[in-house]
Design a protein around this nucleic acid. Structure first.
Length: 321
DNA sequence: GCGTCCAGGTCTACC
DNA sequence: GGTAGACCTGGACGC
C-alpha cells in the first residue's frame, strides 16, 4: 500500500481534441465519498492514475474488455460520480456498460459499508470515519495491476515505486495519446525478458517476480482476478497470495484490504513509525503490540488501522472532503 | 563530484 | 521455526 501521502503534481496533458467526449453519471450509495476514495492511499499517484487536487479530479486511461482505450476524468457529484470520457471513436452501449463497471470497481461503488460505518460509530475515537464517509480504498481495474504495483512498493522509497510503475506503463502499456498510457496487460509484461524489466523499468531484483506473475497469469496458471470475489477465509486467501514470489506479509496484507478483507494489518516501516507517533510518543513498538492494539476491532481492524494512520492526509491537505 | 553507508520487504539457505 | 545475508536503488552524508 502506498505508505506516504500522494503528492500533487500537474495532471497529464488532455487527450487530442479530435477525440469524442461523452459523459457518464454513476450513482452511488449515500455513504460514498468520491474524494475520500480517490485519495485513500497512494494509488491515485501511480500511473495510469493521476489526480488534480485543486479540482478534486481523478484521471486515468482504462482498457476495456475489447482492448479499446478510454480516458476518464472523474469528479464527485451530488449522488455519485460524474465521468467525462474521451475516446478515439464513439462508445457502443456494451462498451459504456463495460467502462461504467470498471469505474465502479475502482471506486468500490457497489460495496456495502453500512456494517463498517456502524462499527466505527460504536468506537468514540473512530466516529469521524462514519461522519466523513471514509472506508472505500481506491483500486485498479484489475487485480493484476494491483498486485504488480504492490510488488513495486516493497523494499524501496515511494519515489522509486513511482519510477518503476511509470516506466512499466510507458514502455509496455498501450498508448492512448501523447502522454497517456494504459497499464500493461499480463501478456505485454510476459512478452519481455528479465533484462528488459531491470534495465528499462528499473524494477531491479523484483523483475523475476513480476515476470513470473505475468507469465502465470497470461498462461492461465494463476487466476488473480478471482481474489476480489473469492469466498475463501482471509487466512486461505492470504496463503494463496503468498504463493506469488515477491508478495510477502506486507504486500499480501495490503492486497487483502483491496479485496475487501480487513483482518490483516500489512505493516511496513512507515505505518510502524506512524503508529508510534500516534500511540507511544515516538517509542518504537513491536509488530505484536500493534496487532494486539487493533485486535479488539475484529474483522474491521485492518481498515480502521489504515484510516487512522492516514487521517491527517485529508485533514491537513483536503479539508473540503 | 565521488565514495560509502543505510533503509526498505522478500527470498533462500542454513542452523 | 528462527535467523542471516543477498537483492537493488535512491538518498543522506562525509570528504
Amino acid at each position: 500500500m502506498a505508505s506516504t501521502s500522494p503528492r500533487h503534481k500537474q495532471p497529464d496533458a488532455p487527450p487530442p481534441s479530435s477525440f469524442t467526449t461523452t459523459r457518464l453519471r454513476l450513482s452511488a450509495p449515500s455513504d460514498f465519498a468520491f474524494w475520500r476514495t480517490a485519495y485513500s492511499h497512494g494509488w491515485c499517484d501511480l500511473p495510469p492514475f493521476s489526480f488534480d487536487a485543486e479540482r478534486n479530479l481523478l484521471l486515468r486511461v482504462i482498457e476495456l474488455g475489447d482492448g479499446s482505450l478510454a480516458h476518464c476524468r472523474l469528479a464527485g457529484a451530488k449522488d455519485g460520480v460524474q465521468a467525462t470520457i474521451t475516446v478515439a471513436s464513439p462508445l457502443s452501449r456494451s462498451q459504456r456498460r463495460d467502462l461504467a463497471q470498471r469505474i465502479r470497481t475502482c471506486l468500490r461503488m457497489d460495496e456495502d459499508f453500512t456494517a463498517f460505518h456502524a462499527a466505527a460509530r460504536s468506537h468514540p475515537g473512530y466516529r469521524w470515519i462514519a461522519r466523513s464517509r471514509a472506508g472505500r480504498l481506491l483500486r485498479a481495474p484489475t487485480v493484476f495491476e494491483d498486485a504488480v504495483k504492490m510488488i513495486c512498493t516493497t523494499n524501496c522509497t515511494w519515489s522509486l515505486t513511482v519510477t518503476m510503475v511509470n516506466a512499466l506503463v510507458r514502455t509496455l502499456g498501450k498508448q492512448f495519446a501523447a502522454d497517456l498510457f494504459s497499464f500493461p496487460s499480463p501478456e505485454a509484461i510476459a512478452s519481455v525478458d528479465e533484462r528488459f524489466l531491470r534495465e528499462r523499468c528499473k524494477t531491479g531484483y523484483r523483475s523475476p517476480y513480476i515476470l513470473e506473475l505475468a507469465r502465470r497469469v497470461s498462461c492461465g496458471d494463476l487466476d488473480v482476478e478471482h481474489w476480489r470475489t473469492s469466498t475463501l477465509p482471509t487466512e486461505q486467501l492470504f496463503a494463496e497470495m503468498r504463493t506469488v514470489k515477491g508478495i510477502g506479509p506486507y504486500a499480501a496484507g495490503n492486497l487483502l484490504r483491496l479485496m475487501g478483507h480487513y483482518d490483516e494489518l500489512g505493516l511496513d516501516s512507515w505505518v510502524r513509525g506512524k503508529f508510534s507517533e500516534l500511540h507511544t510518543g515516538g517509542r518504537r513498538v513491536e509488530d505484536a503490540a500493534i496487532a494486539k492494539h487493533y485486535k479488539r476491532y475484529g474483522r474491521w481492524r485492518g481498515l480502521l488501522f489504515w484510516l487512522e494512520m492516514t487521517r491527517d492526509w485529508h485533514e491537513e491537505k483536503f479539508r473540503r472532503s
